[in-house]
Design a protein around this nucleic acid. Sequence first.
RNA 1: GGCGGAGUAGCUCAGUGGUAGAGCAGGGGACUCAUAAGCCCUUGGUCGCAGGUCCGAAUCCUGCCUCCGCUACCA
Length: 557
Amino acid sequence: MPEPHRYYLTTAIAYANSRPGLHTLYEVVGADAIARWHRMRGDDTFFLTGTDEYSVNIATTASRLGKTPRAFVDEMVELFRTAEDGLAIAPDRFIRTTDPDHVRAVHEMIRRAYANGDLYQGTYEGWYCPNEGFKAPSDLVEDAGGVHCPNHPGVELQWLTERNWFFRLSAYQERLERYYAEHPDWVQPEYRRNEMLGFIRQGLEDFSVSREKAPWGIPFPIMPDGSSSQRPDGSWDPEAGTVYVWFDALTNYVTGVGFPEDPDRFARWWPADLHIIGKDINRLHTIMWPAMLMSAGLPLPRRVWVHGWLLVQGERMSKSRGNFLDPNDVVAALGTDGARYVLLREVAFDRDSDVSWDSFVRRYNADLANDFGNLVNRSLSMAGRYLDGARPEARAEFEAPLATAWRQALAAHEEKMSAFLLHDALAALWEFVAAANRFVDAEQPWALAKAARGGDDAAAARLRGVLGDLLEACRLVGLAAAPFLPNVAARLAGQLGVPYPYGPTGAGGPPLVELLRWGAGPTGGRIGTPVPLFPRLETEAQLAGQAGPGGAAGTPG
RNA sequence: GGCGGAGUAGCUCAGUGGUAGAGCAGGGGACUCAUAAGCCCUUGGUCGCAGGUCCGAAUCCUGCCUCCGCUACCA
């Protein structure tokens, strides 16, 4: 199958209610690596991420801090962008639900649903927890004192009645089931698909898409009588209420690529190739969102990938639990590329994984400092010492044992990347790194060098071949791992004395597959000065010191 | 409660009928190019429990125990 010429991928937009946690940016780091992989392969890539900024809670928090909601989210967004910069995340657009074009896109989605007969006025009523919003009866606990929210037992519940617009999700059950049947892998991993299919088969209820009493939101564009809620002066009639935040949030995926104002751009990028989301919002993305798109007459995304959570001692890392790591601390301790690597290697992309400072440091030292970093360092040092810094060429594929190992490693790596198993994709590359380290000990270049100095021409030739193979191995791993290690990849190329043709976001060079062939590097030239790419981290205590007070999760003591 | 998944070495996991595996962590060794890294060897498991089928079960069947996911409007 030919590679698609364009690739559009998204993350869920992050809820801008407080500073970002590592567990939130994990998803963005994974998406960024996939985006870079596509850019380097030569695909025209559009990577969208951003922030979800409307909600009653945000308005409440802002008010408590004496700020306007807008001023508050501006501050939060700045924190997200700074943390993402630290992780070398390079979106093609950072979308905010407060962006003006997004408001217009949401209005268009609402109008289309209305025109399609999928919106009607109804009444929503139920127990309302001031901290969490409306609660389903099954989510409440009842005792002698009455009914309360299990998460906020001290907060008194209110019985509220809202007149809302409802979306006719019930009308989409069959169409969704058919879509699932005709696109069996559109939700992955498979068990996540099965959960949603089971949910659909239970029958679907309509859901509300407006809120009467949530002023911090996108104005609902339609009055109860079906007329526009926009007034002559351009403002929106507050009587119409606001758009339910999930309807708003999901729409960001089409806003980001030009809906509805730039039809050419939208036609080029939509449907999305990939939505990457957390398992907690699976239903929104694989039931509600496709129904919204069907209603609007738009094609459905090709794939939704549901990743797992970061766990701390078996519990979900989250801001409310307070057991989260600050991404800035992790970057300070491990570096940008080190942080990206340990996150994506240590956490399985298809399920939950326990993380800790200890596991990060061990992974960093074992894989980056000891295995790969040291391989680069020892290979360059030997070339500098034994060959006077002249860059030796790799041997031909048929006489280079590492070339065979590379072919296998690359095939495994690409298979895992295509399946979004990022941790396994890295593991495949690192098996090759281990093979290269074994190769050094098997060949003993220092012994060859000694023989060569003694006038053994065959040993001298073999030495050049062995070192050429090793530098080639380093070049190949550096390039293949570049979506994960974008900064180090460029530095490594400099040390190896080979060009690095890709730009800061991974775009601009030749298709990666060409440069990943054994022997595809330039010939001749000189190597640079070896400088450790990943300085070894000595102790956890040292790390904890660097990490500061925010680094609570898994810190000893 | 219903549906689904999992329990294998200290940790994370692979292994769907034929003499228990990997990585990391732990122990020992030889080497020296290297970030005291790398390489080689190695300790360690009644494969959740109890039955059953089979010449043979981590693997199939039954029951039980434990854990997890989904079971609709915080985002």
